[in-house]
Design a protein around this nucleic acid. Structure first.
Lengths: 182, 182
DNA sequence: GTCTATAACGAGATAGAC
DNA sequence: GTCTATCTCGTTATAGAC
């Protein structure tokens, strides 16, 4: 059983991924969890603390679920896995990637939350770069450029797909990114 | 000279592109324009009205600035122009595309604002599709898939570039999209 | 760890004077 | 077309009882 702290983070993550950091209130979270807003502040003194905790947890889980980037035999299987981890956000959760949302409103976030959003992108580029180097032997510079391209295209594809209510936009982008790898 | 109505839209657009629709208030707009919040409501009864007007104007200007999609001799010149129109958002304005921001928080927007965000994406896919068909003779289905891919990659590249404070991410993506066209 | 109560503030919006 | 004044409500956050 997850304790209340985790429950608060679960609900806050869902709300941010739907409406943005400035689109939810501590009371919104409290209502879903079934406690009062004041009790939320017992676990997280400020709203920014919630934002930081949600983003750290999201990033850790995301990278951990990807597993060891050095294990892939070919770039195609690495990319298939990577694309699918974004696809799950859309299909399973019917939500965007947390950091696509936070990155879009980065100028209006508490500094620490913006900082952790940046770390999500950096860790993703690092994971993807390593996976590409290990599986296809490209140069580090090329791997980093490829990684940034793939990450950006997937985040954008989530946003456009969700806005149009058309999952095929994401799937088209995903397939092309995979086929570019060979 | 732009009247107050346009000034309000200018300021609101800038604030949304920095902090999101839920990240600014009518008073924020009023302060920059140099009037009171009540006077903003004279021009736009509700905040949603501001959002709709900003998005409609943004979309019209964006598509109009692209010009006739049927005029291109080759896909490369069409794409160079298109990529550059997104690059300007980042380099000249130091902001994201309005609809990258709105699309990311689409679940937390007034319905009409979300609707106009969708229209921005649709009109962009239509423009790009026509430009690709005219310049390289691809099939309508292929053109639409290409268009969605290009649009999504550019929107995502803006977000990742801005979050990382690294313009080269956008430029890398832009160059690759252009070179994919031949 | 959760509650009630409350503070202190900002939000969206309206009425009516000028 | 802009102002002051006001309303109502939501927001973040704290104090202190249970």
């Amino acid at each position: 059983m997850s304790d209340k702290r985790d429950e608060i983070l679960d609900v806050a993550e869902g709300l941010i991924r739907t409406s943005g950091f400035n689109g939810f209130s501590t009371r919104d979270v409290a209502d879903v969890v079934g406690i009062k807003a004041a009790s939320v502040h017992y676990h997280f003194p400020t709203k920014a603390d919630i934002g930081v905790a949600v983003t750290e947890r999201y990033t850790d889980r995301f990278i951990e679920a990807l597993g060891d980037p050095d294990r892939f035999e070919d770039a195609r299987s690495a990319l298939t896995l990577y694309v699918d981890s974004f696809r799950r956000a859309l299909v399973r959760d019917r939500k965007l990637c947390l950091c696509a949302v936070l990155g879009a409103e980065i100028g209006g976030l508490p500094t620490e939350v913006g900082e952790h959003t940046r770390i999500f992108f950096e860790r993703n580029i690092e994971w993807l770069g390593r996976a590409l180097i290990a599986s296809s032997g490209v140069s580090p510079a090329r791997a980093k450029a490829d990684a940034a391209h793939i990450l950006a295209a997937l985040e954008g594809a989530l946003i456009v797909s969700m806005s149009l209510g058309d999952r095929s936009v994401f799937d088209t982008v995903g397939k092309r990114l995979i086929s570019l790898a060979g």
